[in-house]
Design a protein around this nucleic acid. Sequence first.
DNA 1: TAGATTTGTTTAAACGTTTGAATCGGGGCG
DNA 2: CGCCCCGATTCAAACGTTTAAACAAATCTA
Lengths: 342, 342
Amino acid sequence: MAQKIKLSTIAEALGLSTATVSLALRDSPLVADVTRDRIKEKAIELGYIYNRRAASLRTSRSGIIGVVVHDIMNPFYAEILKAIETELDRSRQTFILSNHYDSVEKQRHFIETLLQLGGDGVIMSPAIGTPASDIRLAEDNGMPAILIARSVPEIDVPTFRGDDAYGTALATNHLISLGHTRIAMIGGTDHTSTGRDRYAGYANAMKKAGLPLDPALRIPGPRTKQSGFEAAVNFLANPLKPTAAVCWNDLVAIGLMNGIARAGLVPGKDISVTGYDDLEEAAIATPALTTVWNGQSEVGRFAARALLDKLNGSSEADGLHLIKPEMRIRQSTTPLNPGAGR
Amino acid sequence: MAQKIKLSTIAEALGLSTATVSLALRDSPLVADVTRDRIKEKAIELGYIYNRRAASLRTSRSGIIGVVVHDIMNPFYAEILKAIETELDRSRQTFILSNHYDSVEKQRHFIETLLQLGGDGVIMSPAIGTPASDIRLAEDNGMPAILIARSVPEIDVPTFRGDDAYGTALATNHLISLGHTRIAMIGGTDHTSTGRDRYAGYANAMKKAGLPLDPALRIPGPRTKQSGFEAAVNFLANPLKPTAAVCWNDLVAIGLMNGIARAGLVPGKDISVTGYDDLEEAAIATPALTTVWNGQSEVGRFAARALLDKLNGSSEADGLHLIKPEMRIRQSTTPLNPGAGR
DNA sequence: TAGATTTGTTTAAACGTTTGAATCGGGGCG
DNA sequence: CGCCCCGATTCAAACGTTTAAACAAATCTA
């Protein structure tokens, strides 16, 4: 590394002041065109690198936006992130990504780091059990927060997520309309707003159809393929002999179908399965998975826009915004064959 | 936001100088124990937030490390990233993640941004066609680079990846030992070091076994499930009637198996398939996928360590480090049944 | 008891930008 | 010809830390 090139290096080389150089590089109309061109040329020639830390120390806008979700490896979040990335790229913001794995501590550590770096804002899918104070920590220090996928009690910042109750009701009704009556719900937890809503949607649909709502039909668990795969054993051994499963998400559903296939049954034929999210791989699973599109791209795009708006002074988007899910019917659900049985 | 709390706020409240406060907060032995305690207490009481930009302006260590890969949604990279994250977390470094989607421009933009932010170092899986100058841009400006998964010609920085030629040879030999002779290679490209190595491993194994190496047996393509799924059509229509496939990676293999199943054949029985990487989902695919473990976690861990070492002045790890892959035999490969045919 | 040491704290100069206010050399106006 | 204004540039202070060097007071040493 030869030598740090800074504004003053350019200034000296050209017999100008750093002020002029600074202004020129940012295309200020205050500096003469010919001067600006000379400066820019010199900057390139010398390999000048803009020092954002020094600048942001003065301006207090860092151009950094933080994004923290449960797990970026999870395709559900990955799809949201991709939408956020696309949207933020346009406005030349750098984004810092992190997992919290539902650890409130890890999440708080991230928020603190972001504050230290002077982050302009944060988009988060809050960890289970996130206290309102952690969101306020960000907001109170001038770093606006946007929530995605989950809500936090007592917090009114812009929040974007799918309408989970509506979505699971869609899936449940679809199965009911195919003649199924013993419908299990696989995966997920009751410790998040999402969890409670999804269960409520399923339960209400069952009740409304006059079907029994047996607690044994609920098999909670992590939201992974592995977990769905393992749940197959419990599901198939269930004394109520369910013929269909509403799964927490596509990962669980695909895992469950793999488990069912491993046990020698044919998913989609012997057992109907619905997913949730409509991930890319839902369409190429075997059988192709019937699922509920949960608007990941919308969530990501809206969240990013809301943040950018907020940074520009608007606070239009406060409060909860629900995205309406839609049914995607494929081959993993088929009419109940009363003759077949199990 | 009440008012920015800074070192001087604390100093004034306590009748001390900012120097003492600064030292105390960083546990310097220079300040008296009792003073330090008073200072720390006050800092918490006032809700002080350390300003890293100001600090790093002075110290020129930002605590930021950049990581850029092709696509963080790809589970192969995701597993590497997880290992890097685990390793870096220990040393309190913040990491900034980005995709380059094999765009050299996007990758360069990332490097430039990182330089502007004062990044301490960068770990990258270089985009196809990355010029040596882009790596030097980082290095010449005092930001050490580590390469993973792919090499860049003329560049000698620490590079960690699996031994691809060895790995595909393992897979190919495994199929040969099961009696297969018409073995296709599905997916991937010849535009990366990885691509050339993987093909070389396959080709050498075939030659060494005295088997014909027909170009028609090579079906290149993107490295996704979707691509594998689509390749099934070509594969099954191939006039050479291959009975086995060495796939570029697990995603392609799983996609291919889905495609084979969709066509009414039974993967693992009618057609033997091997993957590459040993992703988590390889084990729960149906049938469970025979694959080659590619040491993602090792690559990530070694890369992170090498970077941290370099930041501490050592340059031990320069040059290429190959991780030896291992075979993971499961149910997607079975002995050729000469009677069955297709 | 004077000088040397130790301990704890402060002073002040950086780090590389940005920006409101000041400067400067003309040119136009009355 | 004096005044004002204009465009282009510079001055200098500020942003919030860190740190070498200086300082002050207390403690030790001879």
